[in-house]
Simulated scan of single mutants.
Amino acid sequence: MTTLTGTVLLYNASFEPLGRVSFQHAVKMLVRQVAVVHEAHGERMIGPYQWPRALRLVRYVATKWLYSPAGYTRRGVLARERYHCAYCGNRANTIDHLLPRSRGGTWTWLNTVAACGPCNERKGNKTPQEAGMRLRVDPWHPTRAQVAAWS
């Protein structure tokens, strides 16, 4: 039995990625004829439509909003660093504040980096300089388009 859950990639008419939509939303877009199946799951069908893995919009949608600064998310920070620790390069599973929260640090793109548990614990309540730890990456503020591409 196949479930009707999950997400479907969504491309603009110009083939640039816009993000993901729910499977139910994807089917509604097909029925309204605002999108076509760009990539399908083999020969599976849902009514008269191929089972979508990716959709492409029929008309171009202006995406100026995609190039504005993205809202901060924990998942976005991990994806920005490609799930690698900003200190040692190992697999990252936590977020580290460059200026610790207890010392006035905030949850922002420029004050947080991905870190592995041991490095995060080693740094503790210090700045990287105070802890003698060198950053392998410089934190930066991504656009909405960059965050959508990581999804």
Rank of each mutant, 00 (worst) to 15 (best):
R20C: 07
Q33M: 11
L18C: 13
W51D: 01
L18D: 07
V36L: 12
V34S: 06
V37W: 00
I46V: 07
H25S: 13
A54E: 01
G19C: 09
R32I: 14
E39P: 05
V21E: 13
H38V: 02
E39V: 02
P48Q: 12
L55F: 00
H38E: 10
P48L: 08
A40H: 05
Q50G: 15
Q24V: 11
A35E: 02
S22K: 07
V36F: 04
P52H: 09
H25W: 13
H25A: 07
G42Q: 01
H38L: 07
R53S: 09
V36W: 12
V21Y: 03
K28F: 15
W51V: 00
P48E: 09
W51H: 02
V27G: 04
L18P: 13
R56G: 01
A26W: 10
Q33R: 11
A26G: 09
V31F: 04
M29G: 05
A40R: 08
G42Y: 01
G19R: 13
Q33S: 13
V21P: 03
G19Q: 12
R53L: 04
A40E: 04
M45N: 08
H38D: 15
R32L: 15
G47Y: 04
R20H: 05
H38A: 11
R44A: 04
Q50P: 10
H38M: 10
R44Y: 06
V34N: 08
V31A: 14
Q50K: 12
L30D: 09
L55G: 00
F23T: 10
A54Y: 01
G47S: 05
V34T: 15
P52D: 03
G42E: 04
W51E: 01
K28L: 11
I46Q: 07
F23H: 15
R56D: 05
V36E: 10
H38Q: 09
Q50S: 14
P52V: 03
Y49G: 01
R32W: 04
Q50T: 06
Q24N: 15
W51Q: 00
I46W: 11
P17T: 09
I46D: 10
V34A: 04
A26K: 14
M29K: 07
K28P: 05
P48M: 06
R56E: 03
V21T: 06
A40C: 05
G47P: 08
M29I: 06
Q24G: 08
Q33K: 15
L18F: 09
M29Y: 07
Q33Y: 05
R53N: 14
V36M: 14
G42C: 07
V36K: 08
G47W: 02
Q33I: 03
Y49L: 00
H41I: 14
R20D: 05
V31R: 12
A35N: 05
S22T: 11
K28A: 13
R53H: 14
G47Q: 02
